[in-house]
């Protein structure tokens, strides 16, 4: 790439402010986190979060990956509306979506905090690891406080924001075993959490088979736009690109198992496809997770 072009791209895509949002549809505000691993220089701003403003109140979707993102999110909400926050919805319990919760909750006092039914157990099982990881990555003096929503959803639930309904839906194991999506009926915007990655390599921490099996239903929700957990707001094409990667991963791992390859051989032998960011950190891990799932297929 010519240097001038590279420099121009760097300038135009300068790091957005941690409280920057764009209104992707009337009353729908989205912050795009950086496509990066959490680190001190990005202060954990490495995932997307959003809020939806109704006539009566506001719903916030995800909390970002640090106390700083939680505060930035609260500031972004208060810069645009004085309405109360009736719900904070967490799409899943990974630290890059969850760690902003205490700061956000303190600042905005949401009336309800909601997640999928299996989130509390999943976070309980990982709490120590997540605290140690965040402390190391964000270079914090002490491990961060991790809090989880007290209200859970199994199946579907609706939130009325006043003249605007959000439909929450918990899914079977896919990206994690506790994925939750939010659909804004007014703008037909789907907040997919990490059930959709755009540009950022999808990360498998649940079930490859479950993710592939449910992708058609997610795509068929017929959203006008989908806000992924990572990467830019997408059309249906985002689902297709992700499914191509996941199906390719499944096929390559099945072939390795068919050749009696060990896990180590499969990890070494299955290359990451081009066109994705973060493959260095996540592709070999995805092969590992896929292998230990698919070896139980008969």
């Amino acid at each position: 790439m010519p240097l001038a072009l590279a420099a121009a791209l760097l300038l135009t895509a300068a790091t957005p402010a941690p409280d920057a949002v764009s209104e992707v549809a009337p009353g729908v505000f989205v912050h795009l986190g950086q496509v990066a691993e959490a680190a001190r220089d990005n202060a954990g701003d490495t995932s997307n979060w959003a809020f939806v403003v109704g006539e009566r109140c506001v719903a916030v979707i995800d909390a970002g990956g640090s106390e700083a993102t939680g505060r930035a999110l609260a500031a972004a909400v208060r810069a645009r509306t004085a309405l109360p926050v009736c719900a904070l919805v967490i799409t899943h319990g990974h630290p890059d979506h969850l760690l902003g919760l205490p700061a956000l909750a303190a600042a905005l006092a949401p009336q309800r905090q909601i997640a999928a039914e299996r989130l509390p157990a999943a976070v309980a099982a990982r709490r120590g690891t997540y605290q140690a990881l965040a402390q190391r990555q964000l270079e914090l003096a002490a491990p961060p406080v991790i809090a989880v929503p007290g209200e859970t959803v199994n199946g579907e639930a609706a939130i009325d924001l006043g003249g605007r309904r959000l439909v929450l839906r918990a899914w079977k194991t896919a990206h994690t075993d506790h994925d939750l999506t939010v659909f804004d009926e007014a703008s037909r915007t789907l907040f997919a959490g990490d059930l959709l990655f755009v540009g950022h390599l999808p990360v498998l921490d649940g079930s490859l088979g479950g993710w592939l099996a449910q992708a058609p239903a997610l795509r068929a929700l017929g959203a006008a736009r989908t806000v992924p957990g990572h990467g830019p707001v997408s059309s249906a094409a985002g689902w297709d690109a992700q499914t191509a990667y996941l199906a390719g991963l499944r096929d390559a791992v099945r072939a390795a198992l068919g050749r009696h390859q060990t896990l180590q051989q499969a990890v070494a032998g299955i290359d990451a496809p081009a066109g994705w960011a973060m493959t260095e950190l996540y592709h070999r891990r995805n092969v590992t997770a896929a292998y230990s799932e698919l070896e139980w297929e008969d």
Partner: peptide, 25 residues
């Protein structure tokens, strides 16, 4: 060296593991 990202030592799909509990292959 430890893993990065959201990687944790816990199982990914406890329900699936329990549903298949004790199968030896």
């Amino acid at each position: 060296r430890a893993a990065g990202g959201c990687s944790a030592p816990a199982g990914k799909d406890m329900e699936a593991a329990l549903a298949r509990l004790g199968k030896v292959k």
